[in-house]
Design a protein around this nucleic acid. Structure first.
Ligand SMILES: NC(=O)c1ccc[n+]([C@@H]2O[C@H](COP(=O)([O-])OP(=O)(O)OC[C@H]3O[C@@H](n4cnc5c(N)ncnc54)[C@H](O)[C@@H]3O)[C@@H](O)[C@H]2O)c1
Ligand SMILES: NC(=O)c1ccc[n+]([C@@H]2O[C@H](COP(=O)([O-])OP(=O)(O)OC[C@H]3O[C@@H](n4cnc5c(N)ncnc54)[C@H](O)[C@@H]3O)[C@@H](O)[C@H]2O)c1
Lengths: 210, 210
DNA sequence: TTCACAATGTTAATTTTTTCACAAAAAAAC
DNA sequence: GTTTTTTTGTGAAAAAATTAACATTGTGAA
């Protein structure tokens, strides 16, 4: 296995999510077309992705759910797990902490940061909130590799700079303000408005065709 | 202009977001490479997208910010605007309402739905919360075209069915439970864990190379 | 006034991603 | 025991998306 396409990585994560649900329900094997239906893609696409990671199913029985979950884990997870921080413990930050809580054993949100004195020192869903002044120290101490930005847009850039300076290697930016990072920091940006506008566009398109 | 690629639609939305910021700061023209830098893509990509929507800039002056904002609006927005509902007024639902509030004049969240009696009848950031029982009635009355799912994952499927039955034409699913919709309903699903896992994967990859 | 530059617009090439098509083989049916 | 069915795995083709290359031209410098 040499290079996995970005899209494949995303799908592997999604496959695993679906597989975990299957596993809970006691299903031991699954066909490529079943996975495909769940994800709204084609069975060939699924088989191609699994081919890329070198997994081989059983003819006519499909894929072993448990095995596949573990294999995907061995590819996308870090063995030792990875520590994550949230910058901005507001509505979205707290919602995320709540949501992630315990969902993936290898992804742990271990610190939150804020500038609001009322929040600093508190704990939310088990995650301690620190002051921005201690960010660099805590990030290094706790070996945090990824920062999730949920500060007000006006503070996105300075927060990103803080994170980079502290040595973070990945940033997930949920503010609507695009940021810049050095080459060795992996950046992903997501704006919910973009997604909603896309949905709205295709709804409009469909109305027009009709 | 015939078919706009999905990716182009997303980028147009992002370009507009960047352009709106420029417009506020009083900048009247912008070069393709400036837009490209903001979005972390290439200038050719920007020019190609604008070519697809038939917009022509001024040689050596770049693109007229205001004009381009309006043109993108004329393509991705519906003239009359589009009404949106949130199903599940919990952490994420409320955060979204708060966030969208007034951001895009053509995209209005006009109703929220919940099953919790304490929430029903209240208003959050100007959005009234209704009971699920009234969903179909309200959706039709208010001509709501898009539903955003932020209910607990266990209730995603039933909520989606409710929305479809009520005649919604687009669904944006933020729960981690994949849903199915008829062909004439446009569906977009997004799971933050997938994005975070992707970031984590590339961080891991970079560590390994080093 | 001419020249060099800097930016757009677009055709062609390349790369990436997806789909097609089908061989192989295990299981089921007969 | 043979045939049919079903599902995997993959080379080849197609489609989609991106990038390269470059002609064009307005602008300002010389
Ligand atoms: N709410 C949403 O659904 C949503 C969706 C998409 C994007 N966003 C974006 O996410 C960000 C947060 O949204 P929210 O609704 O949680 O806002 P919020 O105001 O509730 O939370 C922001 C938090 O960041 C803190 N903060 C401010 N400056 C800071 C700094 N320099 N360093 C650290 N913390 C700081 C504030 O004290 C506050 O606790 C915004 O940029 C918003 O545009 C929100
Ligand atoms: N919190 C996040 O950051 C986050 C991120 C990604 C995805 N999600 C997903 O979004 C969903 C909501 O997350 P949350 O943190 O807001 O949860 P939450 O528990 O705070 O909110 C859920 C809300 O839905 C309401 N509800 C329950 N059943 C309902 C039904 N059948 N119809 C209408 N409303 C109903 C509840 O009363 C509650 O108000 C979950 O599926 C979660 O997995 C959350």
């Amino acid at each position: 296995m040499k290079h996995l396409p970005h899209k494949t990585i995303e799908r592997l994560s999604q496959y695993r999510r679906a597989l975990l649900i299957c596993h809970e329900t006691g299903k031991s094997h699954i066909y490529s077309h079943e996975i495909a239906n769940i994800q709204h893609i084609t069975a060939v696409q699924v088989r191609r992705d699994l081919m890329l990671i070198g997994y081989t199913g059983t003819l006519r029985k499909g894929y072993n759910v448990k095995e596949l979950i573990d294999l995907i884990g061995s590819i996308i997870d870090s063995d030792e797990g990875i520590h994550v921080a949230i910058i901005g413990m507001g509505n979205l930050g707290r919602a995320l902490i709540n949501y992630f809580d315990g969902k993936r054993s290898k992804l742990n949100i271990v610190a939150g940061f804020d500038t609001n004195p009322d929040k600093i020192g508190n704990t939310m869903s088990g995650v301690p909130c620190y002051a921005n002044e201690d960010l660099e120290k805590i990030i290094r101490e706790k070996d945090i590799k990824i920062g999730i930005l949920t500060v007000p847009a006006d503070h996105a850039i300075e927060s990103a700079e803080l994170l980079v300076k502290a040595g973070v290697k990945g940033i997930l930016n949920y503010t609507p303000k695009p940021i810049n990072v050095p080459n060795d920091v992996y950046l992903e940006e997501y704006d919910m408005i973009t997604t909603l506008e896309k949905v709205a566009f295709f709804v409009k398109l469909q109305e027009m065709v009709k």
